[in-house]
Amino acid sequence: MGTYILRRVLYSIPVLIAASMLIFFFVSAVGDPLAQVRAIPKVSQETIHHIIVRKHLDKPLIVQYGYWVENAVLHRFGTTLLGDNPIWPDLRLALSNTLQLVIVSEVVAVIFAILVGVYSAVRQYSAFDYAATTFSFVGFSTPVFWLALILQVLVTNIFLAYGIRIFYTSGFSTPGVTGLLPSILDRLQHLALPVITLAFVSIAQYSRYLRASMLEVINSDYVRTARAKGLLTRQVVMKHALRNALIPFATVVALDFGAYFGGVIVTESVFSIPGMGLYFIRALNAADLYPIMAWLIVTAVMVILFNLIADILYGILDPRIRYD
């Protein structure tokens, strides 16, 4: 198992290098790093020339890539072009906020998806199953940002009408809240709506997926064997069937992590959560390529990391996988 994990980690390295090249050349191809500087009339030609030399923008692209990698590794992505602010501290804070949001959403989504998926599969074509199917289709068809806006309108209007503050509709915490329990409660009140928004679509997808793989497993020979042994239905479903259905499901959930970083862009910008999404939108609006590239790299690392976790999970869940 140890060597298996090590091999997977080593395998991730070339993937990360390829991803970093893709990111650098893609961003360099679509954007001009100096566009924003040139747009400011006060900036003199000398200043621009100074920036070009300092950031090696006069060198061939492949050399620029080398400098950029060096900068990223040794100086934690360096500084922004305008204002020369260090990138990493802001990005790290954004990442930790986003991870809180994403992990809570994923946990909520997985719990609900398992409940809905298992019950739908066991009671195939029941009223519940049809309701769950309809819900899933609505989930596939709803724009995340619109759902976020509608939730905001609803909760705000409830607050305005009745004066009850159930959930906050923007921000990540209330300034001035102290103490462990009050601040946890405050955080949860801020997290609730973004989590509902993010989990909504995931529950729709995951529950469908789990339902399908449960159905396949439930009709398998070994589940029939389990029933023929005289096990309780609960044991047959929750142990023999679910344990097998979880193998592909765990992989799908882990791999879906990358999509979450797309999802947070929209959710965070609607709910003004100071995370990766908001950071990304700010960097885009400033048209500063360096934070954008740093963001893409951090995201790619997250995706690769969760690919790795998916592989390891797969190895743990399925004894048929050989490690050597």
């Binding site: 893609f26 954007g31 990358g258 999509a259 862009i265 048209a287 790619a300």
Partner: peptide, 20 residues
């Protein structure tokens, strides 16, 4: 195609459409 999938599609689209 694997490589394209290591980046969130939405982010790539946003970068491309914003910068272009």
């Amino acid at each position: 195609t694997d490589l394209v999938l290591t980046l969130p599609a939405l982010a790539v689209l946003l970068v491309a459409s914003a910068l272009l």
